[in-house]
Design a protein around this nucleic acid. Structure first.
Length: 572
DNA sequence: GCCGTTTTCGGCCCGACTGTTTTCAGTCG
């Protein structure tokens, strides 16, 4: 079993233990162990099989978890987990995802009404049964119903990061002699922040064998269909639908274009083709009169034959990209290689998992010229946020650090309080190089109040970046509402950069808002919000969002060389 | 359940809000 699968067993068991009302510190140990295992560079099962080594050498894993791991290695589960699953249904894990219900309520609902599924819960709310229980009332029933609707609406979609990893797994698995190309298309290729299913295209003489191999993938849960040219499966525990299409090389470009979409982009493109006496399909671009092929092997040929510059997949949403391509004014989009520094990350000083030194070293290894350390401020008590005194002391430590080869700026991610005041006083903020202001609480304010709050935060002379501006968590929490036009215009006026938070769970701002903000004159930073060195890799997701938002390198602060970057943050 | 020790037991994260109470439990971040 791989590390991620082991971690999942531990996480799930911890959730069930919480429902069972077990000791919270023990539960935390399980979760902590799961997190450690998930990010461990080496396979745990390899360590378990090596008699010369001990898993207890890994911090966070003691005797108890070591026994659990041995049992998992042996039989794929462990006693406490089996016990929990006997007592509480697996559906309880799903119920925990409904906002407004926690472990205590789920236990009570199960013990009173045998409520074990989302459907049960919905029925109980409609029958007004929740209000018969202590400390539950009509408002909770309403909230739960709303939450169920939201949960169902997002069900079946997956984070871009998850889909990318699955695509990499499957393409790696299918790569073989006789396979010429194997490429993801669809919304994954367009870089959408969530993905419904995965479309993979394969060409080469061994393509039929690839289809064969595909349906035999060890993680294939179900074969949904299997023909001569296409197969479709449910993949992995999460049941992501993956389609694989085998194509002749001469149709590769047409198919890639067709399956990349979006639908609206393709409709507009086909209309353009018709006006030119051409017809575009997934097989080729051809003349209507005699069906003679004009293009098909490469996307570039197709766009060129339609009188268009090749359009990057991220722009293919029929939002002006075809007109821009026709007029030769597509933007020169930002690329990952343009990024010269990461400006939002955490360390063990607050809730990060790696030290200041480790984070800096990881940035240096990525070839960055600079970075900003931006731990939390005191309002985030659960993250051990910094108060004024600690923030200043920590800034001194950051500056005194040996930083050969990379420039380290001392910053903070300062909470924006409910009334829009910054969580730290201005004297403290003035001591820091780089202040991000972020909302972490009271996200359910009315739009007008939230707008006032953000306007006031922008007044602070020290704020340089508005962090994850809408607070959304993909598939989980909607963006909080505020008057974007007003806030974006004010941010532009005050020279406050908007963050594109590259964490795959956030991707906040999203692409549409990035484009709207750019139109208001805003500039941006793309930052990972890393809590661990491996999160620095998420920069690529942030760049995708920026590309979908039509940004060029000149729109993004952290593409600047060090000297210019420093000048920019000083002059505010 | 892990960790660290002034080692075999005590500490581990806590404040704010909400909706339900009649003094606070549960949820969230």
């Amino acid at each position: 079993m791989d590390n991620r699968a082991i971690a999942r067993l531990l996480y799930e068991t911890a959730d069930l233990m919480e429902v069972a009302g077990e000791d919270s510190f023990r539960i935390r140990s399980y979760r902590n162990a799961a997190g450690v295992i998930e990010s461990h560079p080496e396979q745990i099962s390899a360590i378990l099989r090596d008699p010369a080594r001990k898993v207890t050498d890994i911090p966070g894993i003691g005797k108890g978890i070591a026994l659990v791991l041995a049992e998992i290695e042996e039989r794929g589960s462990f006693e406490r987990r089996d016990e929990m699953l006997e007592k509480y249904p697996a559906g309880a894990l799903e119920l925990l995802k409904i906002q407004g219900l926690g472990p205590k309520s789920i236990r009570l609902l199960f013990e009173t009404y045998r409520c074990a599924t989302i459907d049960d819960l919905e029925r109980l709310c409609r029958e007004q049964k929740l209000r018969e229980l202590p400390r539950m009332g009509a408002k909770l029933e309403e909230k739960v119903l709303r939450s169920i609707a939201h949960y169902r609406q997002r069900a079946g979609r997956f984070l871009l990061s998850f889909a990318q990893e699955a695509a990499a797994e499957v393409t790696g698995y299918l790569t073989a002699p006789g396979i010429e190309r194997i490429t993801p298309a669809g919304s994954l290729r367009r870089g959408r922040e969530t993905v419904g299913d995965l479309d993979l295209l394969v060409t080469g003489p061994a393509a039929p064998e690839a289809l064969e191999k595909f349906v035999a993938h060890p993680k294939c849960q179900e074969v949904l269909g299997r023909g001569a040219n296409k197969a479709s499966i449910r993949y992995g525990h999460e049941s992501l639908q993956v389609d694989l299409r085998a194509l002749p090389a001469e149709s590769y470009g047409a198919a890639l274009q067709y399956f990349t979409g979006s639908k609206d982009h393709n409709v507009a493109l086909r209309q353009r083709a018709l006006k030119m006496g051409l017809t575009l399909s997934e097989y080729a671009l051809a003349k209507i009169e005699n069906n003679q092929r004009v293009a098909g092997a490469a996307e570039e040929e197709i766009y060129a034959a339609l009188g268009l510059a090749w359009i990057p997949p991220e722009l293919r949403e029929n939002c002006g990209e075809i007109e821009a391509a026709a007029e030769g004014r597509l933007p020169a989009l930002i690329e990952l290689g343009h990024i010269r520094g990461d400006l939002h990350m955490h360390t063990t000083e607050t809730d990060g998992r790696a030290t200041l030194e480790e984070m800096a070293e990881a940035c240096r290894q990525r070839g960055y010229e600079y970075l900003a350390i931006t731990d939390h401020s005191k309002a985030l008590a659960m993250a051990n946020g910094l108060d004024e005194k600690r923030a200043i002391e920590f800034a001194h430590r950051v500056r005194e650090m040996d930083s050969a080869g990379i420039r380290i700026f001392s910053g903070i991610e300062c909470d924006i309080r409910r009334d829009g005041a910054m969580d730290l006083d201005h004297d403290a903020l003035a001591e820091l190089d780089f202040v991000i202001g972020s909302v972490h609480s009271h996200m359910n304010l009315e739009a007008a109040e939230m707008t006032d709050r953000l306007m006031r935060a922008l007044e602070c002379p020290y704020i340089r970046v508005l962090g994850h501006p809408t607070g959304r968590v993909l598939l989980h929490r909607e963006p909080f509402p505020f008057d974007c036009d007003l806030i974006f215009a004010e941010a532009a006026r005050r020279n406050v950069y908007l963050e594109i938070n590259a964490s795959p769970e956030r991707l906040d701002l999203g692409a549409a808002m990035v484009r709207a903000a750019k139109a208001k004159g805003c500039k941006f930073v793309i930052s990972t919000d890393a809590h661990h060195p491996r999160h620095l890799l998420h920069m690529s997701y942030g760049v995708l969002v920026a590309r979908r938002g039509w940004l060029a390198p000149s729109d993004v602060l952290n593409t600047l060389p060090l000297a210019e970057f420093e000048k920019s943050i000083r002059k505010k």
